[in-house]
Design a protein around this nucleic acid. Structure first.
Lengths: 279, 279
DNA sequence: ACAAGCATGTAGTAAAGCTACAACAAAATA
DNA sequence: TATTTTGTTGTAGCTTTACTACATGCTTGT
């Protein structure tokens, strides 16, 4: 709808053009606005607004609200600019959500290029799995640990470099080390990858494919780092990592067959059976 | 919107139920319908229709058309069945991603109904912010804490019930307590909400709108709990919570103006300037 | 220069959404 | 059981809304 208006703005009369411009500038307000409000804000009369609606192919003013509502929540707009300081907070919030959705959609499209089956195979036979991440990735690591341990495999999360290096240096061949890093720039991670894979462990890296870490890993899950052009840019890539780990988790549960599924169900029931108490 | 209606259909009176059923049966017609038409088709009076709208959380009948238009325009893709044991792992992985994307899209469509501005206002003037969550929500709480403290507001994350209750019992009027819970069933959370709001603090709940906790909170961010029909169902609602907190974070940064943005930039630069060392 | 055509606003109308009140039914209390 | 209370539903009326018919003013072409 907004693009339709944009296109037909050229063959509108000057008063109608004012209407179009106001709507394009304040699409969010225009949704659910009254005829009187639009005419006042755009500096033209009510019939002009109605005539504008007819001109862009609508039935009347009533239609405009509906169509604008539709187009504002349409998937075409998930690709948005970065948040800028003069955005209203409602705009900003929408943009952040759009960026998050977009990063998941991109991740989905690259899913077929990822070594999920190999990762699952390694994890099925693993003696233990360790998730390593610093800073924001640390939370992802902890989250993954919390999720995977319910499958019955011993899990741990490593959240500082000494722990990661220590784990790597005593890793055994049937251990799996999963390294989470957005940039892949920490040299300690590369060292850990070398150490662990040198000892025969499977090293899975979820990181920027351009990085040094990416080369050192046994299995690579490439995660495009969305450039942080703005300080506001949220950590949407972290969401993608979480979703990816969710996916791997489910794949692993399927591969492990009944036992793992039973364990999941049991631990879930354990939660449900005590609805009124803290653990 | 349609799911919101579906859920609240249970606590409606019989005449209102007729309205809900007609809308659910003819959503396409309901968009842009007039009050008279809906009342006639559903076999009830006009005020009943208006009362129905209020009951499901809308402002009035006018809102209904807009919200229905929004929810109908969201894409039907990405909605997949649950993962089933005979799925190939590639199928399963795609389904999990789709579910995650879908939950974000739903969250986005409900964004306009959320008290973001009020939450931001409370947090701007806050003496401190505390994020409370147990289990999987605990990771979300920690993540949020890690993110918000960079804005310069003192933050803490509370990850067990004693801590939460202790915080609530000594909360001060300009404190903000954010409670994260998927189900909203833990009675300790309700108690904490009562305690804290009794002492004048702002209590923000990110939880299931049907829960007791939802009623006790100062501000409610409703998060639809996607029914865990299958043990495989991932915690996609957790992703939505994270994304929502991202959004609030950005909105808060914008509202706080230059100082907060500067703090963000500074802390980001601090990371970039030491690319090769652990902290 | 004058008329034809178009753009724009004024005033009025029918209907839309909403509210106050009354009638009624169900539940709780005595 | 009688009576109050609570909640639900509809009628009537009010305000605002979207829209239309008409009048004014401006531009354009012959």
């Amino acid at each position: 709808m907004l693009v339709t208006i944009q296109q037909s703005v050229s063959d509108l009369s000057s008063a109608e053009k004012r209407v179009a411009q106001w709507i394009l500038a304040h699409p969010k307000e225009a949704v659910g606005a009254t005829l009187a409000l639009v005419s006042r804000e755009s500096g033209s009369s009510e019939p002009t607004v109605v005539r504008f609606c007819r001109r862009v192919g609508l039935n009347g003013f009533r239609d405009l609200g509906v169509r604008l509502a539709e187009s504002l929540s349409s998937p075409a707009s998930y690709v948005h600019r970065d948040v800028s300081p003069d955005d209203s907070s409602a705009d900003a919030v929408l943009k952040v959500m759009d960026a998050s959705i977009q990063s998941l959609i991109e991740m989905r499209s690259q899913l077929s290029a990822m070594p999920i089956d190999k990762a699952v195979a390694a994890m099925t036979n693993a003696r233990q799995i360790a998730f390593a991440g610093l800073g924001a990735s640390g939370h992802v690591a902890r989250d993954a640990c919390h999720k995977f341990f319910r499958l019955g495999v011993p899990c741990s999360s490593l959240n500082d470099t000494p722990m990661i290096l220590q784990f790597a240096s005593i890793a055994e061949p049937d251990d799996v080390l999963i390294l989470l890093s957005h940039t892949g720039r920490w040299t300690e991670f590369s060292r850990a990858a070398e150490l662990a894979s040198g000892r025969g462990a499977t090293v899975i890296a979820i990181t920027n494919p351009e990085s040094e870490l990416a080369n050192k890993a046994t299995l690579l899950f490439p995660c495009q780092v969305i450039e942080d052009t703005s300080v506001y840019t949220p950590m949407s890539s972290r969401l993608a990592q979480l979703a990816l780990l969710d996916a791997i988790h489910v794949a692993l549960a399927l591969a492990s067959g009944e036992t793992a599924v039973d364990r999941l169900r049991t631990s879930k029931n354990a939660l449900n059976s005590l609805p009124d108490h803290a653990h």
